[in-house]
Structure formats: structure tokens, C-alpha cells
Design a protein around this nucleic acid. Structure first.
Lengths: 186, 186
DNA sequence: GTCTATAATAGGATAGAC
DNA sequence: GTCTATCCTATTATAGAC
């Protein structure tokens, strides 16, 4: 007999799914309630701050995932090219081959000065920095490394937009394949 | 003495601004009313179908803009490389150097089977096709031309996401500069 | 920890005067 | 064509029982 109807991990999975798909404003408590199987009041028990708390928890968890599964290996042992290949494999799983949107996209609409957007910016910033670092270790000059890192994030985000709009996952797959080469080109 | 408080063009400009920034769900009638200076009832007089009508009109107009200012010159006279350069210049203006989001991104969230998303897909599809055409004319094989066109759209969308999140417009600018080369590379 | 019930507010949309 | 006033519904949020 479980103490909670749905455990923390599964709850956050389902919350993530809703925020990814509908964006912050589109993710109504009705949708969230349906997706999680919990009534409004139960959701407020878990997230006293309401929807904003939920979105922050979702972002926090995605950040942890990125850090442990992608960024840590990226700054770890082995040849830079192999570490980038590893990242590509992890990203393929994370975004379900392009079928999942990126929270950094779906949660970055709305007014400039909101708390969620600050979290989003932080997440993307860390990612760019780590990518630039591995490119430098691969022999790319500091200036180019930063540009390539930004371009890589741009390409990831862009192919995910195309995937969502066109239901064409080819560009995303291709981008991942080419990532080791494009990030380390001289 | 004007018959209308705001003319059609300016009205659509302001509607575009709101939908771009806040997305479909985030664009409440209160926000729209404030941004346009028109009361709810006046908006319904102009757009009997309500918010959905407004979003469709905004997409329609953006599509016309794209067609006349970008796609027509793209399939016009002159060397392919010059036509692409021209597109880059127009896109720079259209997206205000990266400061404006793309409607194809902000309006593509939500449930799969909604009318708006179909319009969005249509718009992106035409754009990809035209880009592929000019790449072919530039001597790129049909298969590669399609891939390069998808990549170009991906890169445009991705740099706009990065611009929105990071407030860094460098990647967008760079992408436009490199567009003629990347689209026509052998 | 989850529920039903309910309050309070914001959202989309309409009627009718000017 | 625009307005004020109003309606209905959906949304966020809370109270209190179990």
C-alpha cells in the first residue's frame, strides 16, 4: 500500500509532459489533474505554490537530468569527440528522437520579467558553457568554441521546433549525428 | 476623423506582437485589449470568431509577408546566392535582428489536432520547399537541397529560441550571414 | 495524502446603446 | 465601429472531511 498515489518521479514525469506540450499558460490545472490522476487539492498539497511551483520543480528536475546524464559525462574522461557522441545518444533518449519538445522553448514565452524564464536562461547558459569547454579541449580556439556551442544549442532547439511543427524527425536525428563533427571543426 | 480607431494594418501589428510574445494561450483578451487599445466587444466586431480568428489573421498576414518579401524574391531573377542574401536581409528586418519571436514557434504548442497548428505547418512547409528549390538551382542535388533547406529553417528557429532565452542576438546574426554559404555548399 | 465542495477570480464571448 | 454592461464558463486556489 503506497503512501502516495503517484510517486514523486512519476508525478514529475507527467507534469513535464504537460508543460512541454502545452507551455506554461496552456498547462491548466484541469489538464494537469487529468494527466497526473490527482485532484487539484492534492496537487496543491504537493506544490503549495501552485502551478509556478510545479513548473519550477519540472525545470529543476530536467536540469538535474541534464547535469548528471549529459554535462557530467561531457566534462569527464575520454576523447572530446567520444564525449560529444555520448551526449548525442543521451539527448536522443531525452527528447524521444525529437518527439518531445524542449522545456527551454515551451517555458520561455510570456513577459520578460518572470521567474520561470530566469530558470530557463540559467539552464541554457550552463549547457552552452559546458559545450564550449569540451570544444576547447578538442582543440578549438576559445572564441570559436563559444560560437560552436551556441550554434549547437541553436540547432538542437531548431530541429525540435521543426519536429514539433512538421512531425519530421529527420533534421533532429541528422543534427545529432553531425554534432561531434560540427562542434569540433577547425 | 478616422472611421476606425486603429487601422487594419496597425491592429494586426499589435496582435502579432502579443501572440508572438505570449503564445496562443498566454495571449489573453485583456492583454490583447490593452495592446490594441480596443475593448473586447470591438475586437469581436472585427474578428467574429474571437481569439482563434485573430490568430489566424495574424498567421495569414505573416504568410503574405513571407511570400511577397522573402519567397517571391527567392524564386525570382538573379544568382541563387544573391537571392539568398536578399532573404537574409529581409529576415533580419522581419525578426528585428532576433528580438522578435517566430509565430511558427509560439503558436505551435498545444494539442495536436488544432486548426492553428495546421496553418503553422503549412507556412513552414512552403518555406522549406522554396529554400530547397533555390538550393537546387544553385547546383545542389535534390536530396541535399531538401536537407539543407530543413537545416536552414531549423537554424533560423533555433537561433530565435536562443535569442529569446539568452537575449543574445549574435547567433541569429551569424546564422543569417552564413546562410548563403551553408545553403549552397556542395 | 487525497478527496469533495466551494470560493474567488480571470477568461472568452454577447447584447444593446451610441 | 466602439463602447459599457453583462453572462457564462474555466481557472486558480482554499477549507475541511476522511
Amino acid at each position: 500500500m503506497p503512501i502516495t498515489k503517484v510517486n514523486e518521479d512519476e508525478l514529475l514525469d507527467r507534469l513535464t509532459e504537460v508543460f512541454r506540450t502545452y507551455g506554461y499558460e496552456g498547462a491548466s490545472l484541469s489538464l494537469i489533474s487529468k494527466a497526473t490522476g490527482l485532484q487539484r487539492a492534492s496537487l496543491y498539497h504537493r506544490f503549495p505554490g501552485g502551478k509556478e511551483d510545479m513548473a519550477k520543480a519540472v525545470l529543476e528536475r530536467a536540469g538535474q537530468w541534464l547535469t548528471s546524464r549529459v554535462l557530467a559525462p561531457l566534462s569527464g574522461q575520454g576523447k572530446p569527440v567520444d564525449r560529444i557522441r555520448h551526449m548525442a545518444k543521451e539527448l536522443h533518449a531525452f527528447y524521444a528522437g525529437g518527439k518531445h519538445c524542449c522545456l527551454l522553448d515551451s517555458l520561455s514565452f510570456g513577459s520578460d520579467d518572470n521567474d520561470i524564464r530566469h530558470h530557463v536562461q540559467q539552464g541554457m547558459s550552463v549547457w552552452v558553457d559546458e559545450l564550449a569547454k569540451v570544444a576547447r579541449e578538442g582543440g578549438v580556439t576559445a572564441k570559436k568554441a563559444r560560437m560552436y556551442a551556441q550554434d549547437a544549442i541553436s540547432h538542437i532547439q531548431g530541429t525540435l521546433v521543426v519536429a514539433r511543427v512538421m512531425k519530421d524527425y529527420g533534421p533532429f536525428e541528422r543534427m545529432l549525428t553531425e554534432l561531434p563533427t560540427t562542434l569540433l571543426r577547425k
